[in-house]
Write a protein that binds this DNA or RNA. Structure first.
Lengths: 204, 204, 204, 204
DNA sequence: CATGAATGAGGATTCATTCAT
DNA sequence: CATGAATGAATCCTCATTCAT
C-alpha cells in the first residue's frame, strides 16, 4: 500500500471512529504510522485529504449510478442493485460523516468547496434520474425531477439520523420500506404524478 | 430581555450566520453586547448555551407537531396543516442552518447535546407517528415506525439540499410531490405495508 | 505600561538583539512577560506588531520632517536638526532592522505591504524635499527630486552597511562627512545643478 | 553544466524571483531538475549554496571594480567607466534582488555569510577608494574612507528604492545627478574635506 | 551518483476558560 | 454583576536534513 492510500485509509478510520473534528493531522498520521510531516509529502492540505476521500466516495456513487443504468435489459437486476447499494451506504460510516463534514464546511462559507460539490452532486442527481427513467419510464418533467430529489434527500436524511443516533429503527426495517417503495410504491406513485400532469395539461 | 435570553438570541444569530465553528464565545458576547466574562455569569459552559438553544429550537418544532396533532376530528384539516407546516420549514433558513449546525456539533462529539437531541427527536417522531395514526389508521409496528422515520428524514434531507444550494427544483414542485404523497401516495403505500405485514404473519 | 506598549517594547528589543527572523511570537511574548496567547489579545497578527512598529518609526520620521520644516525662520537650526535626527537613526537598531524586514517582505511579493509602505515613503520623501526647499531654496524640478532621493538613499544605504557590519568607519566620521555635506557641500552642488539646468534651457 | 553550477544557477533564479524565504531546498532542486537528495551530494548545507552564490556574486562586483581601476593613466576614461558601471547596476534587477536577499540572510543571523560578505566588502570598498585616490588624489584618512562608504551606500540605497518601487524618478535623472557628482561635485567636496582636515590638524 | 519518502522540531494562530479588579 | 486581560493547550503547516533503496 503506497503513501496516499495509507493516508486515505487511516483518515477514513479516524473519521469513522472519532468524527471529522477530531480527525486531526496528527491523529491521521499516527493511525497511518507516519509523522505529521510525512502527510504533507503527499497532501498539500488536510482538506485535500478529505476532498480526495469525498471524491473517491462520490465517484463511487456516480460510477455505481452509471453502472446500474447500463444494464437496461434487466429491470429486476437494476432494482436489486439500487437496493443493495443503498443498503451499503448505511454502513459507510466514514463516508457519511465526511459528507456531513463537507456540508458543514459549505454552510460555513467555503465557496470553493460549494462549487466543487455542486458539480459532483449534479452528476449524481442525473445518475439517479436516469435510473428512474430506465426503471419506470419517467419523463423529464419538473415534477419527476422533484421526485428524484426527494428520493436522494430521503436517503441522505435517514443516513443523518443514523449518524446522529436518533433513529432507533433497525436498518433492515428501514430497508424493507425502501424495497417496497422501489418495487411497488414508486410505480404507483409515478402513475399518480402522471395522472396529475395530464389533468393539468387537459385543464389548460 | 434578560441576560440568558440576550445570549441565546445572539448565539442563534451568530450560529445561523457563520456556523458553529465561528460561533466563539467572544463572537457571541460581542453580538450580545457584553463581555466574554459576562457570558460565564449566565452559563457555566459554551456547551450549555448550545444545549439551551437546541432545547428552545426543538421545543418549537415539537410545539408545531403538537399543534398539528390536536384537532384529531378533521383529517382533511390535519393534512392541510402538515403540508402548510412543511412548506414553511423550507423558508426558515436561519432555523434550518441552526439545526444543521447542531447536527455538526453532535457529530463532533458533544454527548450532552446528543442526548438532548435524542430525547426530543423521540418526542418529535412520536408526534409524527401519531399524525400518521390519525390520518391513515397506522398500527404501531416496526415497519410503520420506519416509515415515519423515512418521512422525517426526507424532509430534513431535502432541506439540506436547499441549504447547500444543490437542489434546483422550485419549492412549489417539491411541495406538489409532497402533497400528492400525503393525499394519495401514503394511503396506498400504507396498504402495501399492511399487506406485507399480513402476508408475513400468515406465513409464520 | 499597557499591553500594546509592552508588546511593542519587547518586540523592539527582541528584533534589535536577534533580528526580525528570530523575533518569533513566543520570543516576543516571553520578553514581554506574557503568554503567546496574550499577544493575540492585542494584535491580530505578528505582522501587525511589526507594522505598528514601522508606523511608529515612520510617523516619527515624518513628524520630524514636518517639525523641522516649520521653523522656516532659522536655517541654522534646521540644519542642526537634520544632522541630529540623522545621527539618531544610526542608533535605532530595531527600527532599522524592521525597515529592512519590510523591504524584504515587499521584495518577497507582499503586495499589500508594498502599497502601504509606498504611501508612507512618499510622505517621507516629500518631507525631505520640503526641507531642502527651505534650506537651499530648491525648485521643484526633476533633478532636484532626484537629488533628494539620492540623499534619502544614501542614509538608508549607509545604515544597511552598519546593520550588516560591513562599515568599519566610526559613526562620528560618517557624520562629519554628512555635516560638511549639509553645511557646505549641498549649497555648492545645488548651484552646479542649477547651472546645468540653466545651460540646458538656454541651449534649447 | 555540472552539478554545482546547475544548483547555483537554479538557486540564483529562485532567490531573485521569489526571495530567500521561498528559496527552499526543494524549490532549488526542482528548478535545477534534480531531487532534494541530490543537492546534498554537492552541498553539505543549504548555507553553503548561499555562501558559494554570494562569493560568485561579489566576485563579479569586485572584478568590475578592478576592471575600472586598471587604466590609471586616463582619468576621464575612469570617470566614464564608473558612471557606465553604476548605470548598468540599475538595470541588473536579478542581481540586485539577489544582493538584497543576501543582506536579509545575514541579518537573519547567518554568521558565515556575514564573514564572507565582510571580507568581500572590504576588498570592494578598497577598490572604490583606490578609484577615488586615482581620480581625486584622495589621501588615506578616516574621513576619506567615510566618504567612499557614503558613495557606496548611496548607490545601494537608491537601488533598493527602485527595487521597492518607491523611487519614481527616471534613472536618467538619477544618473545626471551622479555624473555631476563625479565630474564636479566630488572634486569640490573633497577640497572641503581636506580643508577641514588641515584646519583640524593646524588647530591641534 | 540519484531518488524521494520520512522525520521532527519549530512557527503562527485560535479559543474556551479563569480571575483580579 | 461586569470587565477584559491572560492562560495554555491544541491545531495546521513548513522545511532542512537524513537515509534506505
Amino acid at each position: 500500500m503506497n503513501g496516499k492510500s495509507k493516508i486515505l485509509f487511516a483518515a477514513k478510520k479516524v473519521i469513522s471512529e472519532h468524527g471529522t473534528n477530531r480527525a486531526t493531522v496528527r491523529a491521521i498520521a499516527e493511525e497511518a504510522g507516519m509523522s505529521t510531516g510525512a502527510i504533507y509529502h503527499y497532501y498539500k492540505n488536510k482538506e485535500e485529504i478529505f476532498y480526495d476521500l469525498l471524491d473517491e466516495s462520490l465517484s463511487d456513487s456516480i460510477r455505481i449510478a452509471k453502472g446500474i443504468k447500463n444494464h437496461v435489459e434487466n429491470k429486476e437486476k437494476i432494482k436489486r442493485d439500487v437496493i443493495q447499494k443503498t443498503k451499503e451506504r448505511f454502513y459507510k460510516d466514514a463516508e457519511n460523516r465526511l459528507q456531513h463534514h463537507f456540508a458543514h464546511e459549505i454552510l460555513s462559507g467555503n465557496m470553493d468547496l460549494k462549487q466543487k460539490l455542486k458539480e459532483k452532486y449534479k452528476q449524481w442527481n442525473l445518475g439517479i434520474e436516469e435510473i428512474l427513467v430506465n426503471l419506470y419510464g419517467l419523463e423529464d418533467t419538473p415534477l419527476n425531477k422533484a421526485l428524484s430529489s426527494w428520493l436522494l434527500g430521503a436517503v441522505d436524511g435517514v443516513i443523518l439520523q443514523y449518524l446522529l443516533e436518533v433513529n432507533d429503527n433497525k436498518v433492515e426495517d428501514m430497508m424493507k420500506i425502501f424495497e417496497l417503495l422501489i418495487d411497488k410504491g414508486l410505480p404507483e406513485f409515478i402513475q399518480l404524478i402522471n395522472a396529475m400532469e395530464n389533468k393539468k395539461s387537459q385543464g389548460t
